[in-house]
Nucleic acid binder design. Structure first.
Lengths: 194, 194
DNA sequence: ATGGCTAACTAACAGTCGTTAGCAAAGATA
DNA sequence: TATCTTTGCTAACGACTGTTAGTTAGCCAT
């Protein structure tokens, strides 16, 4: 089993992602991280400026992935129901593509400090607005029944975002199939029509 | 505005709940907590045995609330669709009743140490099984269309569990109304029928 | 061979962590 | 009045925190 050796910086980021996910950012020490790699804590600083730089890279890296997914979806000019299906599919793809980074993205962003924290929050808001826009246009066009759109968007995204905790790449279900069931559930609900 | 003075132990637990929610368990020090109350860190130990005891009380307190809600629902012997509506309503009620404790319950339980950690996880599994049972019976009776029940349960619960982050007691929507919209969304989906 | 770059090391800094020991004041009980 | 309990205090323990300084060994281009 040949180990794939990439550069140290990538190796550090990957191990940090795993540890931040497993123990949380605040509870992971630089010495923990160094030990997981097999070097001394001080040696990490040949490759990075601070612990927070790692968190930064992970959180904003995921944010960019989500934005890339959004841009792909928006470039296609689809009707709201089918656009929502695609948006869900792409969102699920991003999460399942790196479950550790997704977990850190979801839970540890609050340990960012200003000004990054504010930047992160506003990117998050922008991404929610993208889903909100799909729902609003769908409602206006008579496709969707939604009372409170904010509530709908946030519960919809939450129904997708736990996936990092459950998905296993070696598991039976492929991201595409997961996305299909979740879309079906979100769009048509649990109740069977007659 | 008269302050309601309860015993110190309750006051400490409440402040700890707020701080653990805002900063995370690992990033909240006993000195932070003591300062928020207006005493010295060492003085806390006249009222509790350890920091983890606080986390314990918060997490298992919430777990008991969820179980009480479940027991109320299960005592009523309802058909799956209406039982699910009630289960959602009660679940939302528990969350909105203490959003800080709910946040801690969702995010900080992993800092429990054994054997409590295992106990907590199994209680969580039991609660998921309660929802799973409703979906399974509903599917078997022909009320629900569900492909993968585990997927359905976890996304359903996730669609409810973010509420602690959004709900404001002083806000416009009452827990009951929130539960109603979420139930509608879960059961009938976003797509408008004909 | 020589100089410079890279990535590692050891040692240490100044601060924080949860927690304990020992003590003091106040209020309740006898 | 005397004693016990409660609840706070100061001081301190040993361990751990992120990070820096200074150094060294190996590699590459000259």
């Amino acid at each position: 089993m040949a180990e794939i050796i990439t550069d140290r910086k990538s190796q550090i980021t990957e191990k940090a992602t795993r540890l931040f996910r497993e123990r949380g950012y605040a509870a992971t020490s630089m010495r923990d991280l160094a030990a997981a790699i097999g070097i001394e804590a001080a040696s990490l600083y040949s490759h990075l400026r601070s612990k927070e730089e790692l968190l930064n890279r992970i959180c904003f890296g995921m944010a960019e992935s989500f934005f890339r997914a959004r841009d792909q979806v928006q470039s296609l000019q689809l009707a709201p129901p089918v656009q929502l299906r695609l948006a869900i599919e792409k969102h699920v793809e991003v999460i399942t593509n790196d479950v550790n980074a997704s977990a850190v993205f979801q839970h540890e962003w609050r340990y960012l400090s200003e000004p990054d924290l504010s930047v992160f929050k506003s990117m998050r808001g922008e991404y929610e607005a993208y889903f909100m826009d799909i729902l609003s246009r769908g409602k206006a066009a008579g496709h969707f029944q939604i009372e409170n759109e904010k509530l709908a968007v946030l519960s919809l995204l939450s129904a997708l975002n736990w996936l990092y905790d459950w998905y296993r790449p070696e598991g039976r279900l492929q991201p595409h199939e997961i996305a299909a069931q979740l879309s079906e559930q979100v769009l048509n609900g649990l109740i069977k029509k007659s």
